[in-house]
């Protein structure tokens, strides 16, 4: 910055220059990093200079690259885009593929999940946050965030049913874009994305209520994302 605008613009790629990323989750070096945008996501997660890889050498399961409101990505879409290119730490690359196979760099709140983490529980946790944060002025967000939280809570506790996923997607769709402020969108996106990429894990919660009663069930029986061909985008 001290070197002036022209120097600053040389850093990074296009619109993406430098950004402060707050990395958290199951990584060896959680913390705040100032990165030059354009490095690969792979480098950011696995190099010792940044996150230092997944703790205990576990497998990467998923990543929320830009704060809790952006779509979550399953392992196979974190480091590569749907077209097989390296995913870079830039606004453009992280949103490659739109919401179907991409995400957003958003606020730079970078969360990494290892193989033992439960996406249903995580999604419920996010929805609790947005339910609590809703200011309550406009109806879709005020009522919708609470509704989605309740449905996710029962799914998480193994009391959901197979229709709940479609219900959540529909409720999320009816909130998204129809609220006064973007909090409604922020509440809707992560839920829609989690179901888009991890529907089988939600179904697991419906089908195995006794197993998911234990919130740490993922440690005994990791549920990994399904291969791309099995995913209906």
């Amino acid at each position: 910055m001290n070197d002036g605008g022209a120097e600053y613009a040389k850093i990074g790629i296009g619109r993406s220059t430098v950004l402060v990323i707050s990395a958290s989750g199951n990584i060896n070096n959680p913390g705040v990093y100032e990165i030059e945008m354009g490095i690969t996501v792979d480098e950011f997660i696995f190099s010792d200079q940044y996150c230092g890889g997944i703790t205990n050498g576990k497998r990467l399961k998923a990543c929320v690259p830009g704060g809790s409101s952006v779509p979550i990505l399953p392992d196979y879409l974190v480091c590569k885009t749907a077209t097989g290119e390296d995913r870079l730490m830039t606004y453009e690359s992280l949103s490659d593929g739109g919401f179907a196979t991409g995400s957003m760099l958003g606020s730079g709140g970078f969360i990494v999940y290892d193989e033992n983490q439960c996406i249903v529980r995580n999604t419920w946790n996010f929805s609790r946050f947005y339910h609590h944060e809703s200011c309550g002025q406009c109806s879709p967000c005020r009522e919708g965030t609470g509704w989605m939280e309740k449905v996710l809570h029962r799914l998480e506790k193994g009391m959901g049913n197979m229709g709940d996923m479609d219900l959540l997607v529909d409720v999320a769709k009816k909130i998204e874009g129809n609220t006064i402020c973007p909090l409604g969108d922020a509440a809707a996106w992560p839920i829609a994305a989690a179901i888009r990429h991890f529907r089988h894990e939600f179904e697991y919660h419906v089908l195995h209520p006794e197993k998911v009663k234990d919130p740490k069930h993922g440690y005994r029986e990791p549920i990994m994302p399904k291969a791309p061909s099995a995913v209906t985008a």
Partner: peptide
Amino acid sequence: VEARKGVVEFLLIN
């Protein structure tokens, strides 16, 4: 029409 149906549903759930 669809979005409005959603709004009505939200107003009614509680």
